[in-house]
Structure formats: structure tokens, C-alpha cells
Design a protein around this nucleic acid. Structure first.
Lengths: 172, 172
DNA sequence: TCGGTATTTCATTTTTTCTTGAAGTTCATG
DNA sequence: CATGAACTTCAAGAAAAAATGAAATACCGA
């Protein structure tokens, strides 16, 4: 616990030196994207790009955030497929450059389409199968269980009706 | 890889023996609850209780699902605080018995209140701080960055306006 | 086509999250 | 109160998820 006397600090040259603005943006997006199950590194990348005043190449992103090659590559790939980030070609530079797409609604749209809707359909299937199971139940239990399944259907319905509305609202 | 000749199968007496109905319900809730970041065991417990025709005691739940004492205790505790499960006293039995609360909207309500709204407020704070940072920016970048922050504010606003609406919709 | 830089992939390591079960606490009952 | 069953807690282990970085691949420009 005694403080190491700072003998040169051989490899402490890891200062990413992010501005306050960048730190705020990064932390904000880490938090929000975690909510929809995206790893920290993805939030970091998006946050950094969100406040970047110029398109950034992958190596700059890596260095700035202190993340690995693989994380940067995979994170950018994911953000691209989400439509959250766009590639911009910079004349005279072979590298791909990235900018954040400010249409944040795409996150939501893709999330709803890729995560929520498939789950909903699976759930519908399951409910159907559950109803089939009802027949095999002792009459006593059947009634109560049927009611519960009805309730479930009701909620799935509600959710499915709400999604398009949310989507529309998101798109302004 | 050669199939062990079934010499008595000494401790294979681990058959949880769940009905098809139970399996469907359990899998469904594992899926949905994972979406809001709850562990598998919590989904299992809620799913089991959802189709149970009678209140269940903790030891029955453990045995049925093949989960540990700790997982059952903690999972039930969490479900209780979420309002997803209720304790029912059964006369002549010292154990607590649990039933699933069918008002699934409580999940959503608690999720919104505990996860979404605090994040939103944090985000508002951050945006405020980000605007302070603007002053220190070179004039060139300032304009573009301000626009981005405005966009962010716009989205936060939208989200915050949507939440109460969603809440109302959930409550029928 | 070649040379080399930019990017992707993926086996491995690291980190985080979940589960387990023994020890501790609570509490109804005799 | 004392007993013991019911429940909770928590340190340690197991499992899952994410990050790393070396190797493979793609691609640009000459």
C-alpha cells in the first residue's frame, strides 16, 4: 500500500487524455447502450464518435479509448449494422473513417425489430402450445390455468400493439 | 464416449420432471426477463409460479427447478420487491407460500421507475455539464458540437415524454 | 502482380455475473 | 425460553460475457 516512488513510470504512458466533454458523452452512452445489452466498449466508441468534430479512423479510436484492435473492429461492425455509425471516405487516406449517425431512433428501431419482435413471435408460439397442454390438465386446474394463459395473451397483444406506436413516435 | 452401461445410475435421481406446460412458461419468462437484465433463475421461478395451480413453498420451488437454496431465496426476494410475486399464508404451514402476481404491468412499472427514469435524470445532468464544456471549445467545433448536444436533449425529452404514456398504456 | 497497410476473425485470457451451500439469523411453537 | 424448521446472507466456485492480440484476410495503390 506504500506509494511506489515513481521511478520513471516505465509504461504508464497510457494516458488516453479524453476531454471532459468526451468523458461525459462516453459515460452517457455506456449507460444507455448497456440498457439494451450492448457491451461497454460499444458504448465507448459511440460516445466518442458522438462528440467528435471530425470523422475518426479505427486506430485513432483504439488509441483514444485504450481498447484493443479486436474490440474496436467488432464494436464498429456492430454499430454499423445498427445503423448507429457510418463510414465516410476521406480523400487521400486508405483507412475507413467513422462518424456517429445522429438519428438515435435507429438504435431503437433495430432493437425493436431484432430483439423485441422475434421474442414476441416466439412467445405467441409458446402460448399456442400452452393452450394445447390445457387439455391434459385435470379439470380442476384447467380453468384457472386457462385464465392465466388468457392474461398472458392479453399482455402479448398489448405489447405488440404498442411497438408500432413507439416506433412511429421515435421517428418524430 | 462409450455409453456407460446403466449400472443403477446412482445419483441420476435428479429428474425435476416438469410438465410441458411448465417448461413452456419457464422458457418464456426466462427470455422476457433476461431482456430486462434478470438472471435465468429468476425467470425460472416466475415461470413456474405463473402456471402453478397452487401457492408454492420455497423448498418445493427449489426441488422442482433444481436450483439452490440461495438462488431460490434471492430470486424470490427480488421478485417480491418487483411486485411480481406475493406471499400467501397457508394455514397450518410455517413456510411462506408464493403466488405469481398476474399484473405483469408491475414488472414494466418497476423497470421504468427503477432503471429508466434514474438514467434519464443522470443523462439530463450530463447534458447540462456537456453544455458547460462547450465554452472551452475552439469556436470552429463549438457550433457543430452544440448541435449534437441539442439533438441529444431532443431525444431525452422525447423519451421522458413517452415514459408516462407507456406507463398509462400498460395499466390498461 | 506485389508490397504492405487496414481490417476481420477467433482462440485465449480477463472480467463480470450468477449460483452454490454452509453458516448465521429469525421466528413460530411447545 | 429453548428448539428446530424456515429463511437470509455471503464467501467461494462456476458459468457466461467481453476484451485481447496474433494470425488470416482483404484491399489499395504502384
Amino acid at each position: 500500500m506504500v506509494a511506489e516512488t515513481q521511478t520513471v513510470a516505465p509504461r504508464a504512458q497510457k494516458k488516453p487524455s479524453l476531454s471532459d466533454l468526451e468523458v461525459e458523452a462516453i459515460e452517457m452512452f455506456i449507460n444507455f447502450l448497456r440498457l439494451i445489452g450492448l457491451p461497454k466498449s460499444v458504448g465507448e466508441i459511440y460516445g466518442l464518435l458522438f462528440v467528435a468534430s471530425r470523422p475518426m479512423a479505427m486506430d485513432a479510436i483504439m488509441e483514444r479509448l485504450g481498447i484493443s484492435l479486436g474490440a474496436a473492429s467488432q464494436g464498429l461492425k456492430l454499430l454499423r449494422t445498427l445503423g448507429a455509425v457510418r463510414v465516410v471516405y476521406e480523400r487521400g487516406d486508405r483507412r475507413d473513417h467513422y462518424v456517429a449517425d445522429l438519428e438515435i431512433s435507429r438504435f431503437a428501431t433495430v432493437f425493436i425489430k431484432d430483439e423485441l419482435q422475434p421474442r414476441m413471435e416466439m412467445a405467441n408460439e409458446r402460448v399456442r402450445r400452452m393452450e394445447e397442454c390445457l387439455a391434459e390438465l385435470p379439470a380442476k386446474e384447467r380453468r384457472a390455468t386457462r385464465q392465466r394463459i388468457e392474461r398472458l395473451k392479453h399482455w402479448l397483444d398489448k405489447g405488440q400493439k404498442m411497438l408500432p406506436w413507439v416506433l412511429r413516435f421515435m421517428k418524430l
